[in-house]
Design a binder for these strands. Structure first.
Lengths: 145, 145
DNA sequence: TTAAATTTTGAGACTCATTTGCATAAAACT
DNA sequence: AGTTTTATGCAAATGAGTCTCAAAATTTAA
């Protein structure tokens, strides 16, 4: 936690930006949330704790956290962008169920190697990547029709 | 072409839906377009040929083509969903440049195997998947600042 | 430490892709 | 042909995300 705050602070300073109260709150809640959350969910999460921050500020802070390497836009579901924080660098694959919306996370180390090879070949500098598969989860496959 | 039409027709019939004129036009243009297109671009493409179809109908037809296995929602760029048709099954990876928006497509057979292994392990039935990486393309890396 | 300058915030207006309601049109059925 | 059903187009509605701008917080200058 302290660690993330320091990273964010340093990042902000390097851009001549300030670690303000709302930004601190957002960072804290982002790291308290271990799901794939939407801005709206984060907004609610913050509001429940009576430490109000406007939606606009959250929207404005997301790219800062992403640039600071602390947050990732992980997937899009039902027309909403979803985010997840990044501790270290556990990259993963998401299986998203078309029917119940469940998100299964899978670590995938092999992937990184393949990607890096490709990036080298095409001289592309990867900032972030996402691998998502959609289909039916175990449970939903059983429910016929 | 005839092939795709047949697949679409069969799909529609199986759902008690009809292969109408607008649906035929949309299918034809989807397969004439070899890019990652937006609904709006498809709309324009159709309009240029004087065979008008409303945006609403295009929006309504996209999920049908997807369900029929002929279309794929390939990526999202600048707040717009982009689609691409599916011939056979060339799945691929997209490198999307953050700066110039260029999309580099890469075939990735190895990936499929890994994914299938994982799907089996988690009992997940994959309908489609996407692997997208964002960063800087060769050219944009040179432009410093 | 007060005053001026700068940055950030919150609230709500705005944008724009996508969805929806409804009246009309086309198609299938009788 | 007339009736029922489904599809279409238009225009209005929706809703996530962005932007504006006045007020608030923070920094800098004196």
């Amino acid at each position: 936690m302290e660690n993330e705050m320091k990273i964010f602070k340093d990042f902000l300073v390097s851009k001549s930006l300030k670690l303000t109260r709302p930004r601190k709150i957002i960072l804290r809640e982002v790291f308290q949330n271990h799901d794939h959350f939407t801005v709206d969910e984060l907004f609610e999460q913050i509001r429940e704790k009576h430490s109000n921050v406007s939606r606009a500020t959250i929207y404005r802070t997301m790219p800062l956290l992403i640039d600071a390497g602390l947050l990732k836009q992980s997937l899009r579901c039902e027309a909403k962008d979803r985010y997840e924080h990044i501790y270290g660098h556990e990259k993963h694959l998401h299986f998203i169920c078309d029917r119940c919306g469940k998100i299964i996370e899978i670590e995938l180390k092999q992937l990184e190697n393949i990607l890096n090879d490709m990036a080298k070949e095409y001289d592309f500098k990867i900032r972030e990547y996402n691998l998502g598969a959609r289909g039916l989860c175990k449970e939903c496959q059983k429910k016929t029709e």
